[in-house]
Structure formats: C-alpha cells, structure tokens
C-alpha cells in the first residue's frame, strides 16, 4: 500500500516538472519578445537568459528529484 502511495506521490511530484517547463518557457519567451524589440541589446543578455533558465529549471529538477526519490528510494 505504501508503495502505491509513493508512486502516486511521484506522479504528483512530476507535475512540478511541467510547472518548471512553464517557467522556462516564460523566461525564453519574454527574452525573445524583448530581443525582437531591441535586437542590439539581445546578444549581451544571453548569459542572463541562461542563468534565468537555469534557476527556473532547477526548481523543476527538484520536483523531478522528489519523484525519483519516491520511486526508488522510499
């Protein structure tokens, strides 16, 4: 029984990955919108873009990790 609950929890935790995907999409989309308005400033901000994506993605990775822990370690 506990194992089944853990699997359900893992599936719920995996929703976080989707949330992170929304976040990453937000970052990239807004960057693109800004870049199209001011293309000359875009090149200097790609590093910031990647840092932003990395931070947004990190939280998704946490939820993925929770899912993995529930699946394999609990």
């Amino acid at each position: 029984m506990e194992g089944e609950l853990a699997h359900i929890g893992a599936g719920l935790a995996a929703i976080g990955s989707g949330a992170a995907a929304i976040g990453v999409g937000n970052v990239a989309g807004n960057f693109l919108a800004g870049a199209l308005r001011n293309p000359s400033a875009a090149a200097s901000q790609t590093a910031t873009l990647f840092i932003g994506i990395a931070f947004a993605e990190a939280l998704g990775i946490f939820s993925f990790l929770v899912a993995l822990l529930l699946m394999f370690a609990v």
Partner: peptide, 10 residues
Amino acid sequence: VSHSIRLAGN
C-alpha cells in the same frame, strides 16, 4: 544543492 542536482538531474 541546486547547482549539483541541476547537472546530475538533467
């Protein structure tokens, strides 16, 4: 934590 888990997780 995020620094390491990001890389390994991905």
